[in-house]
Design a protein around this nucleic acid. Sequence first.
RNA 1: GUCCGGUUCGUCUAGGGGUUAGGACACCGCCCUUUCACGGCGGCAACACGGGUUCAAAUCCCGUACCGGAUACCA
Length: 522
Amino acid sequence: MSDVRVRFAPSPTGYLHIGSARTALFNYLYARHTGGKFLLRIEDTDLARSTEESTNSILEGLKWLGFAPDEEIVFQSNNADKHRAAAMKLLEDGKAYRDFTPKAEPSDANVKDAIKERARAQGGDKNMRDNEYRDLSKDESDARAASGEPFAIRLKVPDAGKTSFEDQVYGPQERDYAETEDLVLLRSDGHPLYNLAVVCDDIEMQITHVIRGQDHLTNTHKQILIYEALGVTPPTFAHLPLIMAPNKGKLSKRKHGEVVSMTTYRDAGFIAAAFRNFLALLGWSAGEEREIYSLDELVEEFSLDGIHRSNAVFNFTEGDPRKWTDDKAIWMNAEYIRTMPLGELIPFVKPELNAAKLWRDEYEDDDKEWFENTINLIRQRFFTLKDFSSQGRAYFSEDFDFDAAAVEKNLKKFPDLKTWLPELATRFEVEFGDALQKPAREQGRNTQHSNKTFTEENIETVVKAFTEEKGTKLGVIMNGARTLLTGVAVGPSMLSVFETIGLERTLMRLRSQMAWNQSNET
RNA sequence: GUCCGGUUCGUCUAGGGGUUAGGACACCGCCCUUUCACGGCGGCAACACGGGUUCAAAUCCCGUACCGGAUACCA
């Protein structure tokens, strides 16, 4: 057990963003790797924008990812009194001053742009120390405050010198005091501001390492100023490169919608372990040619040294259902689905089938073996958990749709199949009929049967003979049957499909004219 | 504008003085096969640019360009 204490400190102004999720991951990994503590602090000091809904959404996202904090969650707004006290102390010590400048009216334009415009207009000549109240005498300041005049409290940044720190990712960082304005600590309505709150809380929570987005780099200099004024040694800082949109611009909810929200991935059938794995590789590398890491392996391998300095692009194509999110994330998820131990996968499949009303309790009981074999068979070509209830629907229900393209390509193109397939059903019935009363899997145990069992090898023999009789190609029969049996054009070997679907359902589906009657529309 | 940071295949990245610049995803081709989004094999594809330093630069230094971040009584 080390004394490392890190925190993930999201502000509840939206759902858990993919970038925040990665920050949480890196903090979590660092804590586990060092044997330290991973803490969670909700930075809800912006009363106007913070919502409980956001807090819940963030908590949900973290829960899904599996990052439970080691201590009670800290809500920053609960500490406002302490923040105010710290500001007052700095005022007492002469490290801060009252600014009686009337609060500027918020611009009606986009705040961010307005700030940027103003900054541009001021250029590089702006004097950060030109506040007329900076050197107001204590007596006058006290008097004006006593008279009820509103004031903000600003940090009195020293005239000469510079802040510096050793960033664990970006290396040595320096910033001249002249570049930093006398930042506001306390608003004129008494509300503590971000930088003050963060410093106070990090001190109180005894945070040793601050691991956060690179967009906080300049805040860090401001915060160091506060640490210095407070006479406290700052923690170690490690800034993370940012995750950008495909055009290398900012990844935002407004512009990019749900692709950036963690809950989207949960709801889209992603496995948390796979998404974590994907996230870990965005901006970090163990320096080896490996892609798949379990959580334990990530914890083992993780180090601040492996974090990059350049931003990463989260790649996706809006409007393309096949590439709605990053290719690698989809691949990673598929990889997990097809390779993880079946026993670990099934607990994820069950709720999915349940939600689609496809679950039957027998799958854990009498039909357990069949169910496991089926899942194992169909997972090979699946990308998400959703596929089990959509593409895999025909394995669990009679009520499934026929893909129009599959019907067109595999059935209607060969009109003979309209009679051939029902004929094949009859052939199956003749060859395997005695087995009808029992599931295919149990037939092997019954040596009394004179008929052949409905298993791959036997099915192959029958279908091949049937194909020859009809003078057609095996593929025509197989693909036609595939469409009728599963509703789709892709899937595992048809012989496995026949066996898995079972004789009874196979006969019924081969004889059904439903697909044939379906119109060409979609 | 100013300050800060970054730049290796389309994307994620390895490599940090001498490599045929490696891997993964995506894409393309071939194979397997009854289809396929599984699998196998292969291919396409990158050191932003210009100067230095050096016997030797993707790697070190400087500059340029481009990209990003910050710049608030937001977080």
